[in-house]
Design a protein around this nucleic acid. Structure first.
Lengths: 204, 204
DNA sequence: CATGATCGATACGCGAACGTACCGATACGG
DNA sequence: CCGTATCGGTACGTTCGCGTATCGATCATG
């Protein structure tokens, strides 16, 4: 509301007031997200971001009023929906592909998730940004995968396991580091889908 | 190592040096864990704990040298293994009971989990305490439930879904607040077990 | 080519929290 | 019943990060 929409035209902005190019902005966003991943949200400092990107604190505060707003902007600019690209033609194939895909970006986004998990409870704008950027798009894409499977008749629409598939996949992604001390990798998630998700759907 | 073992004999301790009774200590521990749940680990302050328990900061620092050590002691003193009490005679019954049980303490322990999730990456002692208090005992008890099921022949020992059951249950517990905005309750976890876990084990 | 705004750098005020030190008061232990 | 150690309270020094203000340099714009 402050700046990320108001006085920041798109990448092809005609007359920029700021001298900060979109590429430069990406550096800021990548830096702060990376620091959040490694140090946690609370431990991230504007000074640290400024130093690691070799800009001045003034520049950051000129563009984004506060640290939460800065982080929220970084999150929003990183919105993706990787599951949305998946379409192998079969539900089992889509779910396997989703597992592989989820396992790949796990070390990055799952860590970010983890680091923001509690900060989000304190700051509504942060929570909305996280949901908007990383959660809702993926959930929607996953549900779309399931909807297609139902439409093709691969699974009954009232199969009770359907409801829990997103929670299961994101759940194991999130909990593996804690339980086993290492991040979920594509192989782990793939084997999980084949061992638990597909059988529960009757797609053995 | 500092005090929680050295000069603090058990509840029936003969000659206590400290005037802090075990009940009083529990107040400290409960207070700090509660504050962690609501504010997050980083936001918890020794001042806050001291104020809420109406003791002085000096007292806390006399017993536990630093904040991480204090929190670690609180975690260790809260070690439980609620799953260990479960034994209904059948695997499906045990898993349903575990679901109910897990759903009940979810709002408390899952929130604590969440709040400590990232702080744990920075402090080894904290990580060990969390694992020792809340993770390992429950995992062990859950695996014991599964072992008994295998022993009774209710499920094959090489059923690939077995490996993922702890991750599944703890996963959905942890991820539901993020995905749906509310904590997992007994009914949610129970329906999850019946919809996804039991079918994957062939225990429909 | 001149005007003006943004850049990086730096210094500053402010508040918060850690961990320490000192204080009388109080309750245990011999 | 008296010494003594711990209690609660508080003041202190230190560190750290937020957010602001100021300054010369630099780059866009007209």
């Amino acid at each position: 509301m402050t700046s990320q929409d108001a006085d920041r035209p798109g990448p092809a902005g005609a007359s920029r007031r700021s001298k900060i190019t979109p590429e430069r902005e990406r550096e800021f966003f990548d830096a702060v997200l990376e620091q959040i991943r490694t140090c946690g949200y609370d431990a991230v400092t504007m000074e640290g971001v400024a130093a690691s990107t070799r800009c001045s604190k003034s520049t950051l505060y000129r563009q984004w009023r506060t640290k939460p707003q800065f982080v929220a902007a970084a999150l929003r600019s990183s919105a993706r929906a990787r599951f949305a690209l998946i379409d192998t033609g079969t539900l089992a194939g889509d779910l396997r592909e989703a597992a592989r895909c989820a396992g790949e970006w796990s070390p990055k986004d799952a860590t970010l998730f983890q680091a923001l998990g509690h900060a989000v409870l304190q700051d509504r704008e942060l929570a909305e940004a996280l949901r908007e950027a990383l959660i809702d798009p993926e959930i929607a894409a996953l549900n779309e995968i399931l909807r297609r499977g139902v439409e093709r008749g691969e699974v009954s629409a009232d199969n009770p396991a359907l409801e829990y598939i997103p929670a299961q996949i994101f759940g194991v992604l999130r909990v593996r580091p804690v339980l086993e001390g290492r991040n979920a990798d594509p192989d782990y998630v793939l084997r999980f889908v084949e061992a638990a998700v597909l059988p529960a759907l009757g797609l053995t």
